[in-house]
């Protein structure tokens, strides 16, 4: 694994009025790793992702994504980073191909090039072109929509993927396929993944390191085994992320 960091934050803070949402966040994500981003609802995970994409201005602190400053180079960051938001929306009246063509057009990809990329993206996420041909996205199942969402992100051939609760609302089989896909994209294409999720077991399956946030603060960060052994003393080298997570909550009295 390379040591170059793709994402770095230094005392990154976001407040809405006087309410702190993210407080003095320091993280460093290396190129080619799957980084799990954990925490309960309202912990500040999604706000952090929005700040890294330049969609929300930090109240203080700095961030760097692919060597670029999100407050100044948001557009160039968006060329390199694919983002799948929680509860991703779709244009229900379009077909899968039309949705992907629109995303390709927004990314300035020419027609010839986009055709090849769309075919590849559909194949990668396991959406059969014949099956989805002529079918509008409104008629897709939740799992198909989620895979289409990832395909839309892949069309731009990103260096980094931000996935915010990608398995939310999926059945176990659908969730498993998404997690496997994330692992495959990381292994085969070397895409760095920032995976924000509540599904601890899924995060453990693909992540190399994790960060835990509670009420906007980073409370733990590192490899899962290190966190289990060094910090909380659970599992004896085979701890589950859930044990580490729960141990932390017991310790912090949350």
């Amino acid at each position: 694994m390379g040591g170059t960091s793709v994402i770095e934050t230094s005392r990154l803070t976001k407040r809405y009025g006087r309410l702190p949402v993210v407080e003095a966040l320091d993280v460093r994500i290396r190129e080619g790793e799957v980084y799990g981003f954990l925490g309960p609802n309202g912990a500040g995970k999604s706000t952090t992702l929005l700040m890294l994409l330049g969609l929300t201005r930090p109240s203080s602190g700095t961030a760097s994504v692919c060597g670029l400053d999100p407050t100044r180079d948001a557009r160039r960051i968006k060329e390199r980073v694919g983002y799948l938001p929680e509860n991703v929306g779709f244009y229900d009246e379009l077909t899968a191909r039309e949705s992907l063509e629109y995303m390709a057009e927004l990314n300035g990809i020419g027609r010839g090039e986009s055709r090849a990329r769309i075919r590849e993206a559909l194949e990668t996420v396991g959406l059969d072109e014949d099956e989805v041909r002529g079918k509008t996205v409104g008629a897709f199942s939740r799992g198909m929509k989620q895979r289409l969402g990832i395909a839309e992100v892949l069309v731009k051939e990103p260096r980094v993927l931000f996935l915010d609760e990608p398995t939310l609302g999926l059945d176990p089989d659908g969730a498993r396929r998404i997690v496997e896909l994330v692992g495959r994209l990381n292994r085969e294409r070397g895409i760095t993944v920032l995976l924000s999720s509540h599904q601890l077991e899924q995060v453990q399956r693909v992540s190399t390191r994790v960060a835990m946030m509670v009420r906007g603060r980073l409370v733990a960060e590192g490899a899962i085994d290190d966190l289990a052994g060094d910090r909380f003393g659970v599992g004896g080298g085979s701890a589950t992320l859930e044990e580490v997570y729960m141990k932390h909550f017991q310790e912090s009295g949350s």
Binding site: L53, L55, P85, N87, G89, M103, L106, N107, K156
Partner: peptide
Amino acid sequence: RERTQGTLIKLLTQPVF
């Protein structure tokens, strides 16, 4: 409408002004 159906954030995370 874009905000309600969740497509506004998708548009704004593309590399366009």
